[in-house]
Design a protein around this nucleic acid. Sequence first.
DNA 1: GTAGCTGCAAACTCTTTGCAACTCT
DNA 2: AGAGTTGCAAAGAGTTTGCAGCTAC
Lengths: 135, 135
Amino acid sequence: MSELEQRCAEAGLKMTGQRRVILKVLDDSQDHPSVEEVYDRAKKIDSSISIATVYRTLSLLDELDLVMRHEFQEGYSRYEVNVDHHHHLVDLETGKVIEFQNEELEKLKAKIARDLGYELIDHRLELYGKKIKKD
Amino acid sequence: MSELEQRCAEAGLKMTGQRRVILKVLDDSQDHPSVEEVYDRAKKIDSSISIATVYRTLSLLDELDLVMRHEFQEGYSRYEVNVDHHHHLVDLETGKVIEFQNEELEKLKAKIARDLGYELIDHRLELYGKKIKKD
DNA sequence: GTAGCTGCAAACTCTTTGCAACTCT
DNA sequence: AGAGTTGCAAAGAGTTTGCAGCTAC
């Protein structure tokens, strides 16, 4: 039983065939798939699965904090399995998403919020860039 | 003639009554109105204006970089008149948007991208927080 | 005069939902 | 058995678009 599956069970979710398939797809993902992409990958395993179920399952998993929903500036959501805290740099030429962490940045964000009189609850930082070519 | 109007003229846009109304609404906005809000404010000046025109005009202005489109995590877009570079802190309890700038942050972002081998083209930073209450 | 702009309504995309049938536990 | 889950299709929200008429230049 995968860790995702385990944590779903702990949350009291019924482990249906469809959910098992979606969890496997997520477990196997090293990227940040859209709902449509999760759906396509799931269909390869069980072609009878419906996109409504994918939407419902991803929403549930997001609520349980087992996955993280992102809305890059594309008009739809992407999901990723909830790993360590990090941010994203989106390659504007290829759409590739690169993850990074930066401790200094974390401190700075919290400080900025505090200075404005706020407790930082959540945030979003995305960089969009082009690869530097060394000729 | 407002500065926005001037810059639209320079861009070769025809100055119709509807556009003048929308530009005035934007000029008078100190906040970050949604399309619906711009539409409502515009209708108070000219009730015959259509929401399609508001969408079309805001898209145009965004392309010309006269306004900036934001997608906070709300499921729709908000616009603001394109002023100095800054970021936003969204008050999670009231929805209020607070603007801030931070030079240190700017440098850090560019450095992170550079270290990853990227030239920073664009970025997005939003903080979401709750007001700290001093009891 | 004409290219560009408008209002209207229909269409589109992404997402959610009501419902009857089905299935884990 | 019963609550939770599913597929389907319809509905929703936000946004875009085709078209015929209108308007700034």
